[in-house]
Design a protein around this nucleic acid. Structure first.
Length: 425
RNA sequence: GGAGAGUUGCCGGAGUGGCCGAACGGGUUCGCCUGCUAAGCGAAUGUUCAGGGUAAACCUGGACCGGGGGUUCGAAUCCCCCACUCUCCGCCA
């Protein structure tokens, strides 16, 4: 959620900034909502002040055994006006709230302006793509090796689900353990959160109300729960509606969870293989920190995601997303893209974002500053995949493929595979 | 699934219709005292919204005692619904 003060003080620049995010800000509506809200608040509050004064008069009279019938009659009448006013207030307030809730975040000044992925900036490259004569893709490799079964997955569930088998399943598990262990050494505290969350949590990180269609929903009693699309949701909401102490900061968490995405509206994309699935595993890093330290934290967190790729000897590049390609809640985002030989291209494997106070406002994440005044401030939140495990699995197969169809595993992974250096059929 | 108890400020804990943003105790901060520490003394100490103030200080008003609704001139206090926590019983990985 944007700070309403930003819209009041810098409306023009904010509207311009939002335009670069493909958001057409309705200035007329906003101005009208602001005006109506202000009026409703003032009307209601003056009526309430009036009522409170009268109530006090009645109290005094009653206590001194005087008759207060006239005042009581008067109060009955004015309290009806108050009820009407209250209703107006509520309706306007909720319109104002929903207007604010569906506005995306504004971008940081360092974010390049652009409409789509073509304006993203490559920041760095690491590693050299392996020279492979006629590379096979991960599906051919995986099926031949007997470690990937898409046909049976679609039988038991449907498309965009996969079954991993034997060393394929073990590789997935090894990757998860390896990533978590490295992040623990980097100072993150591991969290194992619920995989189903309530609507408030989804609102807190920005998935709701706008992206309901991308989520899997599960009825539960009179309400409904949502399958998490990323660990970002439960982990960021850990401290929802809390005021932390500044001495607790920064808080850095990592979490391994399955992620569930309905991928509505992406029917034509990545139909082959396990690049785009309804369910996949991901290790996520999440930071809670003060505004001043946030820019540096984004660099740090991204470097930690990169450290996984480097340890796994996977060539990658870092992209700075342009305004038009960023997610709804993000203030600034780096994508990491891993080299996939079968596609002869870099493909997204991680997304590291700084959200400013956008999520903190939605989720009520604050800290009490260690200043003499000890004022409350909104936290800044950041998170990044480190990494999406399904896509890492793909990258390991494709980059490690040998002429005989076997997969040479990166050295860092060997201990996690009980000494296995190569996957063969 | 059944029965019961609970949810109040940083913490403990009072408050069953008005003078309660909330007693009392602890904590914290500032000042005094003390060779240092402890003890003691004095004072301060919630959040949030709207308006005023160039900003800060501050001032005025509203709201907040788990969440929502109701009764009432007036609700932390009475009534209803919901959520959560704890205990017991049942069932179960």
């Amino acid at each position: 959620m944007l700070d309403p003060q930003l819209l009041r003080a810098h409306l023009d620049t904010t509207i311009q900034s939002l335009k670069y995010r493909h958001y057409d800000f309705d200035r007329t509506m906003w101005t009208e909502l602001e005006r109506a809200r202000k009026k409703a608040i003032q009307d209601l509050e003056s009526l309430k002040a009036e009522r409170n004064k009268m109530t006090e008069l009645i109290r005094v009279r009653k206590q001194s055994q005087q008759d207060a019938t006239d005042l009581l009659e008067q109060q009955k009448v004015s309290s009806q006006a108050l009820v009407d006013c209250e209703q107006d207030m509520r309706s306007i307030e909720s319109q104002w709230q929903s207007f604010l809730a569906q506005i995306p975040n504004v971008s940081h000044t360092s974010v390049p302006v652009g409409l789509n992925a073509e304006s993203n900036q490559e920041m760095k490259r690491w590693g050299t793509p392996p020279v492979i004569h006629q590379p096979q893709d991960h599906v051919d490799l995986g099926v031949t090796l007997g470690i990937l079964d898409l046909e049976r997955a679609s039988k038991i569930t449907g498309t965009r689900f996969a079954v991993l088998k034997g060393m394929g399943a073990k590789l997935e598990r090894a990757l998860a353990s390896f990533m978590l262990d490295l992040h623990l050494k980097q100072g993150y505290t591991e969290i194992l959160p619920p995989y189903l969350v309530n609507a408030q949590s989804m609102f807190g990180t920005g998935q709701l109300p706008k992206f309901e269609n991308d989520l899997f929903k599960v009825p539960h009693g009179d309400t409904r729960l949502y399958l998490i699309p990323t660990a970002e949701v439960p982990v960021t909401n850990l401290y929802r509606d809390e005021v932390l102490k500044e001495t607790q900061l920064p808080i850095r968490h990592c979490a391994l969870t399955p992620c569930f995405r309905s991928e509505a509206g992406s029917y034509g994309k990545d139909t082959k293989g396990i690049i785009r699935q309804h369910q996949f595993h991901k290790v996520e890093l999440v930071s809670f920190i003060q505004e001043e330290a946030a820019p540096n934290e984004l660099e740090r967190l991204t470097a930690h995601a990169e450290s996984i790729l480097e340890a796994l000897e996977l060539p990658y590049r870092r992209m700075l997303l342009c305004t038009g390609d960023m997610g709804f809640s993000s203030h600034k985002t780096y994508d990491l893209e891993v080299w996939l030989p079968s596609q002869n291209a870099y493909r997204e494997i991680s997304s590291c974002s700084w959200f400013g106070s956008f999520q903190a406002r939605r989720a009520g994440l604050k800290y009490r500053a260690s200043t003499p005044k000890g004022e409350n401030r909104f936290l800044h939140t950041l998170n990044g995949s480190a990494l999406a495990i399904g896509r890492t699995w793909v990258a390991i197969l494709e980059n490690g493929q040998q002429a005989d169809g076997s997969i040479l595993l990166p050295k860092a992974l060997v201990p996690y595979m009980d000494g296995l250096e190569r996957i063969t059929s």
